[in-house]
Design a protein around this nucleic acid. Structure first.
Length: 114
DNA sequence: CCAATGACCGTAA
DNA sequence: GTTACGGCCATTG
């Protein structure tokens, strides 16, 4: 299987619609690297000191919890600003907000158009 | 080259 | 609800 790069991760994260979220494992799956969730976290971590056009705040862990240890409140603020409800325990409802199926469909149509 | 390191995850007890 | 552990894999020192 082809190794994935930071850019592969950023490409998928950029497809998450405003007002939606995805899990680290979901991003890894759509990058074609199922099981590489840790690496997705690593790629997002690399964004901290380089401002890029990547909506990192739309990525949470598989249970909907904010696992960013650097700026959890900033992440919550940005999500709320998009209409995503974040609980006091820093969790979102994945049943309601998970965009994996949407992004997957987007990638499928992109692939068939190409 | 090798070992350690993550903004993680699924399973098991 | 909790902790523990193995797997994960590109990057870094």
């Amino acid at each position: 299987m082809m190794p994935i790069t930071f850019e592969d991760v950023y490409r998928v994260v950029r497809l998450i619609p405003k007002g939606r979220v995805m899990s680290y494992s979901g991003v890894a799956r759509l990058c074609g690297a199922p099981g590489s969730a840790r690496y997705v976290g690593f790629a997002l971590h690399a964004l901290l000191h380089h401002n890029r056009d990547v909506p990192w705040w739309r990525v949470v862990n598989a249970r909907g919890r904010i696992s960013n240890i650097y700026a959890p409140l900033e992440q919550r603020k940005r999500l709320e600003a998009e209409g995503v409800h974040v609980s006091e325990t820093l969790e979102v409802d994945m049943e309601q907000y998970d965009a994996e199926h949407i992004v997957a469909a987007h990638l499928r149509s992109y692939k068939s158009l190409r």
